[in-house]
């Protein structure tokens, strides 16, 4: 049987691939085409999603040439990361490694060298997969996302951004223009763990990120976030609160782990069952606290 070929004929009449070099132009195109335009940055996710049906996409907005979105900058009390910064650039950044070591560790476990060289932090955020590996660290470090449309800009908390599997609050006129993470001057310890079926190229079965800031041995701030354990990457604020103002030695690790288990809502899928994910989350939580305890003693 002959298959109908719907692909447009090759030639010079392609007006539907936009590759602006400035954010201003990109926002104008975004504003004009709204949901009719597909955003592409590193393409490592969207080209998989549209594998063999790329021709079905009518309009592409390729933001990969916007140099202003590729920077990592130190501000007075934060680090500003452009959305086009790749996973590889995150791994190589001394600035990120120094202040947000768990974000570096998470980036190092994304995909493979071929994916890390192209996939971007902005792509990871806007794809909004519950299994997005950079998302728990961003939540735990209390990142803020800068969003802009042609007319307005706004800054939102990372834990208000994700609304469901592959869903977020980004409007169809907006682009993510930056990720800002506050720098702490306290004594910071971070833990990151990814559980998957193999080491490379695996979608996480579960990820957990714990950040603890200490002042005179007391926990001054806690950031705890879990990935692949709910419809969105989740920050477990209730558990964070219970750790505040205490010494590590005053915490009952087992009890906290049990609470993590109770506060996540994973599903059964081909990467693991609900029960498995709950048990693993509890186990890694204990590991996280033990590891930070050890680091502080030796440190």
């Amino acid at each position: 049987m002959k298959q109908e070929n719907n692909q447009p004929i090759s030639g010079t009449d392609f007006k539907n691939y936009f590759q602006p070099s400035s954010l201003k132009e990109a926002l104008e195109i975004r504003d004009k085409y709204r949901s009719e335009v597909k955003l592409v940055a590193g393409a490592t996710d969207i080209f998989v999603q549209y594998n063999e049906k790329l021709h079905e996409v009518e309009n592409w907005l390729d933001i990969s040439r916007i140099e202003d979105l590729k920077k990592i900058e130190k501000k007075e009390k934060s680090i500003f990361i452009g959305p086009l910064v790749t996973h590889l650039e995150i791994i190589k950044s001394d600035l990120i490694n120094k202040h947000f070591s768990a974000l570096s560790a998470a980036a190092l476990e994304v995909g493979s060298p071929q994916i890390r060289s192209r996939g971007t932090i902005g792509g990871n955020i806007c794809t909004s997969s519950p299994a997005g590996d950079l998302l728990p660290p961003l939540l735990a470090y209390e990142a803020k996302f800068h969003l802009s449309s042609r007319k307005k800009s706004r800054i939102v908390e990372s834990d208000e951004f994700f609304t469901g599997p592959k869903k977020n609050i980004l409007k169809d006129s907006e682009l993510l223009t930056g990720i800002e993470i506050p720098i702490s001057d306290a004594e910071v310890y971070s833990f990151w763990k990814k559980i998957g079926r193999r080491k490379a190229l695996v979608i996480s079965t579960l990820t957990l990120n714990l950040v603890l800031e200490f002042e005179n041995d007391l926990i001054k701030r806690a950031g705890l976030a879990v990935g692949s354990a709910a419809p969105v990457p989740v920050r477990l604020k209730k558990i964070e609160e219970k750790m505040l103002g205490k010494k590590l030695s005053q915490l009952d690790y087992k009890k906290i782990a049990e609470e993590v288990k109770n506060r996540i809502s994973p599903i059964d899928d081909l990467r693991g069952t609900k029960e498995y994910r709950e048990d693993v989350a509890a186990d890694i939580m204990v590991n996280a606290l033990e590891k930070i305890e050890k680091e502080r003693v030796s440190g």
Binding site: A43, T44, D62, S64, Q114, S117
Partner: peptide
Amino acid sequence: ELVASCLVPAPQ
């Protein structure tokens, strides 16, 4: 950089 050429849009 090492890339997977199946995931690189030719315009890029």
